[in-house]
Structures are given as C-alpha cells and as structure tokens.
C-alpha cells in the first residue's frame, strides 16, 4: 500500500519521507525491546513513543516507515536522525488500536512472530 493511501486511511500527516513508498506489513508496539525481539521482516512500525531510541531501533532492523499514533510528534532532533537514515515518518491522531485496525482492514498484514 502506498504511503499516500496510508495517510488517507489514518487521516495522517507526513513529517518526512516519500508518499510513493509503500508498506505491506505493520507491527504496533510501544516497547522497543519487543520490536527488537520479534520483528524479522520489513515492516512499518506504529508506536506512541517519540524518542531517539525509536529511530535507532528502526535503524538496526532496517525499517523504513514509522507511524506515530495518539497525536505524538517527535522533536526536531528525532526527525533529523530519521532524515539522515531516509526514513518516512507519519503522524496520526488515531489511537494505536484504530490506526492498526484501519490498516489491517485495508490489507496491511500482521507479522507472524515466533517464540522459540
């Protein structure tokens, strides 16, 4: 799904990045430890955290798209860190539940995670 479509569905705003990029999967979490432990594929990250560690976590996992929920907007410092890494950042006033639900309903898939 094109980022432009994502923005339309979650009534979002783009902070940086490219609306012609696309995503197929999403993972929602405020716990970066869990993101690091469970994400094995290319996916968009939905989170309500807006600190540097979100960008670092995405960087380590090679994730390109982060969607900040509950109206959260990261500081300029955090946005700059993401910009250097050519990430796409979106923000929405939707809750994590609603943003995830709308995307899922429209075909964005969940990751299948393993608990070895």
């Amino acid at each position: 799904m094109k980022i432009s479509k994502v923005i339309e569905l979650i009534n979002g705003k783009i902070l940086i990045g490219n609306i012609d990029d696309s995503i197929n999967y999403a993972f929602s979490s405020d716990l970066m430890s869990d993101v690091l432990a469970f994400v094995n594929e290319d996916t968009a990250l939905l989170t309500g955290l807006v600190n540097n560690q979100v960008i670092r976590t995405a960087e380590m996992l090679d994730l390109g798209t982060i969607i900040f929920v509950r109206g959260k907007i990261p500081s300029e410092e955090v946005v700059d860190l993401a910009k250097e890494r050519e990430m796409t950042l979106l923000t929405t006033n939707f809750t994590m539940f609603e943003a995830s639900g709308v995307l899922y309903k429209n075909g964005i898939e969940a990751l299948r995670i393993s608990y070895e």
Partner: peptide, 15 residues
C-alpha cells in the same frame, strides 16, 4: 520510558 525493560535483551542477543 525509553521503551526498554521487557527483559528480552539478553535472550535476543543469544538468539
């Protein structure tokens, strides 16, 4: 508050 403290780090390093 930074998003850590799940107790997953060391097992994840091992994995």
């Amino acid at each position: 508050e930074l998003g850590f403290g799940a107790g997953m780090g060391l097992p994840n390093m091992k994995r």
